[in-house]
Design a protein around this nucleic acid. Structure first.
Length: 894
RNA sequence: GGGAGUUUAGCUCAGCUGGUUCAGAGCGCUUGCCUUACAAGCAAGAGGUCACUGGUUCGAGCCCAGUAACUCCCACCA
């Protein structure tokens, strides 16, 4: 059979993915097996696959595939997130390109465009995930705004409102002037920026003769906000400003007279110790405004331009205005000085626009109580974080949690199910009443029953924060909000593992835990695996602006999905950032090729039914089985601890080193000779199981190899059966008891082989030259002679003789205390040998000295455990023996 | 300003409860090989004062204290 010497993943991967889909192997239905559930962190419906997704979804796929092969009913639910702000922005841009202004069309029209856009371009990312090999149950693909999820969100809102956990209020919120919406505290990123600190003069209103000065200097980074100033504040104990008590000052440029107030909030050290107060545009100022009953003057429009209160600056953008007003103040001689200043400025997570604190009516959710429960389940390890250092971050946030601003001034999203109407009060005023209900019909009913109102209702214009739907994801995916007792939610919930990035621990992870507690009385998942951030080889974050992010699909095309998956996983221990270099995908590709060629080798063997299994082959098979059992135990431990890269590395070494470099070389028949049936079958069986172990990491090539291995396994019926089956549903081998002695014996034999090879290498002997080997065994048991045949074969040794004393005219090496001699056909370089022996002697003597020092220490001998002391004594004996042997050899050389 | 984490080979990281020759792995590097599975390969090598300074201990990458550098998170000082 002719097999190409290079593995080509392209054709293979495409074919098998389709096969898996055709056979519905990703699909899960509740049954008697134990479930294993993962819900995908829903990517933005507008998103395209980037390296972060690749990492995240590779990890999920590894876990799901492994669980499936371990006999669990594995279900990985995919879906996308409607991503209010991001998607609305995209749709607005799309409309703009078509010459349509959002403001000119109705809400319904806009939503029609948005849905069209979503249908056409949305969810590309899910298609891309297939290229990666993701074994999601695509039949279950969900969207945070599809019917089930929409209704779930609305129900939860109504429920929380009725429980008194959701309220509407006028608060200072983070306003995104570009997206024209409020955003939550978590959506604001504070970035360091190089600003200026302006020192402005506020002249005293109606100064009298006792005034020490005619003005007070106030420092600000935002001079444009003086237009909204309604006070100046100093510290009540500030000696410098006692004379200002009860006075008023004139706001520069504006000419408004405002009071001096005194409050301990002011930091006397900062600036001049005098603070201007703009209650409409700063949270702290707002609080002071409330406290001192100050007037609130809003100077901005929603888009960040100055409104009519801006006077001559009305209509200007806030940053344009800043320059203009400074110029004017400068000219008016009202600027004391200007300093360079570094501060943190809030930017919108989504649009990167500078956040403007803005007073507005918004919906909030009370978090204090629900946070308590969410903290408990992580503290007591009902939910485990990997790595667990994120517990700290989590705790800190929950202990300092504030109410969650859940309303957004957008159209794309879940519209808030609140309806308003005007009601006349007893004294003739009009009052706005609010009704919260599942739909308008319900709202009408309530309005009629509760208020006796039957007129028109006006629904709230706002939609809910995107995370207000994401936090229900593990429940709503199984329809557990609308039908809390349905079979699916009972079966699949709680899910097992959540794989996500640490930057959404508050946005998403914490809130899902809260929702789980609130709506299921149970945690939504048992383990959270936090991935690192994918960085480029220089350690920078991958970003569009830098253009340093490789295109995942191009990578897959070049290295194969298996290769890319392996590359990503190898450098990605949980929680560690991974410096990604496309070169590491090469390692994955090379590995695939290595396996491919192992297949070529095995398939190339002629098999003989007449031949009996040789003893060497028998022990080789025996050893490989033990070795697998041993490594399997390691791998199981790695998975228990969520150390996926370790698990993969162990699998990699088992296949490349133990299987390919050692086992296959051990049993490989001489050129032209056949292999015995027994060894061949064992080899195939081992190869198969190695593929099972590797399958979660490299799904495509393992499926391909597995099928090719089956080909000549005998009867046609079986072959047909296999052809229709998949490696995906085979049983993952489990670790069993293994014989450590046999493993050690083989290691010893491998050391001897390496010793001989080293000799060849250093003496320039051809691998083809047959050598003779003498082993001096003091106690005979040091070598398991069952491996002799293997040593002869792999070291190209004609004969191994066990002798009781050293051989003259030979070069030597030591394995532990065991001396090995190889007679040389040519003259031995005595000088070089002596030098080598001297070095060895020096090392051995140094070692002995350190052991002696320990043993000479009475405190050690008395204090340390018996076992440790015994080991030390053994070391001493070994070292002495070794030294004696080396000395004898040196003697011989002379 | 508060908190957390990291520092081990050229690079990326392991190193469990302090105790075998414990100083490891992968990649990279060096040398020799186109040995009929694989040059995307084979074989053999070289590479480290475990950040620094003290301490505890019979014994310290490992525990403690301090120092330095880096990273991340949180926070309304204009």
């Amino acid at each position: 059979m002719e097999i190409a010497s290079k593995y080509d993943p392209r054709a293979v991967e495409e074919r098998w993915y389709q096969f898996w889909l055709d056979k519905k192997l990703f699909h899960s239905e509740p049954d008697r097996r134990r479930p294993y559930t993962i819900v995908i962190p829903p990517p933005n419906v507008t998103g395209v696959l980037h390296m972060g997704h690749m990492l995240n979804n590779t990890i999920q796929d590894v876990l799901v595939r492994r669980a499936r092969m371990m006999g669990k009913n594995a279900c990985w639910v995919p879906g996308t997130d409607h991503a209010s702000i991001a998607t609305e922005a995209k749709v607005v841009n799309m409309l703009k390109e078509r010459g349509i202004d959002k403001r000119d069309i109705s809400r319904d029209e806009f939503l029609k465009y948005a849905w069209e856009w979503k249908e056409e371009y949305g969810g590309i990312i899910l298609k891309q995930l297939r290229k990666l090999g993701a074994s999601c149950d695509w039949d279950r693909t969900a969207f945070t705004m599809d019917d089930i999820r929409y209704e779930s969100v609305i129900r939860v809102f109504v429920d929380l409102y009725n429980k008194g956990l959701i309220y509407r209020g006028v608060r200072m919120v983070n306003w995104d002037p570009q997206a024209l919406t409020a955003v939550s505290d978590e959506e604001v990123n504070y970035k360091e920026s190089h600003s200026k600190l302006f020192y402005l003069r506020y002249y005293i209103d109606n100064p009298d003769s006792s005034d020490k000065s005619k003005y007070i200097v106030v420092a600000t980074t935002r001079p444009e906000t003086i237009l909204g100033d309604t006070a100046v504040c100093v510290h009540p104990e500030d000696e410098r400003y006692q004379w200002l008590k009860g006075k008023r000052v004139i706001v520069p440029s504006v000419g408004r007279s405002v009071p001096i107030i005194m409050d301990e909030y002011v930091d006397r050290e900062f600036g001049t110790g005098a603070l201007k107060i703009t209650p409409a545009h700063d949270v702290n100022d707002y609080n002071l405004g409330m406290k001192y009953n100050l007037e609130t003057i809003n100077i901005f429009n929603d888009n960040g331009t100055l409104n009519e209160n801006g006077g001559k600056y009305a209509g200007q953008d806030r940053f344009v205005c800043r320059k203009a007003i400074m110029k004017d103040l400068e000219e008016a001689g009202l600027v004391e000085k200007v300093e360079d200043y570094v501060n943190k400025v809030g930017h919108s997570e989504r649009t990167d626009a500078v956040i403007e604190p803005k007073l507005s009516a918004q919906w909030f959710m009370k978090m204090t109580d629900i946070a308590k429960k969410a903290l408990e389940v992580v503290e007591d390890d009902t939910i485990q974080f990997h790595p667990d250092k994120f517990k700290n971050t989590y705790r800190h946030w929950l202990e300092n949690i504030k109410d969650w601003c859940i309303s957004r001034q957008l159209w794309w999203g879940h519209r808030i199910p609140a309806w308003y109407f005007e009601q006349k009060t007893e004294n003739g005023d009009h009052r706005t009443e609010t009704v919260v209900a599942l739909n308008e019909e319900e709202a009408r009913k309530i309005a009629a029953e509760k208020y006796g109102y039957t007129g028109e209702l006006r629904q709230d214009e706002d939609v809910l924060d995107t995370w207000f739907s994401s936090w229900l994801w593990p429940i709503s995916l199984f329809d557990g909000i609308r039908n809390p007792d349905n079979e699916e939610i009972k079966y699949y919930y709680p899910t097992d593992d959540l794989i996500t990035a640490p930057d959404i621990i508050f946005f998403w992870v914490a809130r899902m835990i809260m929702a789980g507690e609130e709506y299921r009385g149970e945690v939504p998942f048992k383990h959270v695996y936090f991935t690192g951030i994918v960085r480029d080889e220089k350690g920078r974050k991958m970003s569009k602006q830098l253009g340093n992010s490789p295109d995942p699909l191009a990578l897959i095309n070049e290295y194969g999905a298996d290769g890319v998956r392996m590359g990503m996983l190898l450098t990605a221990p949980a929680g560690n950032d991974l410096p990604f270099d496309t070169k590491i995908c090469e390692q994955g590709r090379n590995f695939a090729n290595k396996i491919w060629n192992a297949l070529r080798l095995v398939k190339g063997w002629a098999v003989s039914d007449e031949l009996n299994q040789s003893d060497e082959n028998a022990v080789s098979v025996e050893w490989m089985e033990q070795r697998m059992a041993c490594v399997l135990a390691d791998i199981e431990r790695d998975f228990d601890q969520y150390r996926l890269s370790e698990a993969l590395m162990n699998t990699y070494k088992l296949i490349w080193d133990d299987f390919c470099s050692w086992f296959l070389e051990m049993v490989k028949p001489a050129y032209g000779s056949p292999i015995d049936r027994e060894t061949y079958n064992a080899t195939i069986s081992i190869f198969e199981r190695l593929m099972y172990m590797l399958h979660p990491f490299m799904p495509f090539i393992t499926e391909e190899i597995w099928h090719l291995l089956q080909d000549d396994h005998g009867e046609e019926s079986r072959a047909k059966l296999i052809a229709e089956s998949s490696i995906m549903i085979q049983h993952m081998p489990a670790s069993v008891f293994f014989d450590q002695r046999l493993l050690d014996d083989c290691t010893r034999a491998r050391e001897v082989i390496a010793g001989v090879r080293n000799l060849r290498s250093s003496k320039g002997l051809s691998p083809k030259e047959e050598l003779e080997l003498f082993i001096v065994c003091s106690d005979g048991s040091a070598m398991n002679t069952r491996f002799d045949g293997i040593i002869r074969k792999l070291a190209n040794v004609k004969q191994i003789s066990y002798v009781d004393k050293k051989i003259d005219g030979a070069v030597s090496f030591m394995i532990g205390t065991m001396e090995c001699f190889v007679p040389m056909s040519q003259n031995i370089d005595v000088e070089a040998e002596m030098k080598k022996l001297e070095e060895e002697l020096k090392y051995a003597e140094g070692f002995l000295a350190s052991v002696m020092k320990k043993l000479g220490n009475e405190k050690f001998v008395n204090g340390a455990p018996e076992k440790v002391v015994a080991v030390e004594r053994q070391k001493k004996a070994d070292a002495e023996q070794k030294i004696a042997a080396i000395k004898a050899q040196m003697e011989g050389l002379k």
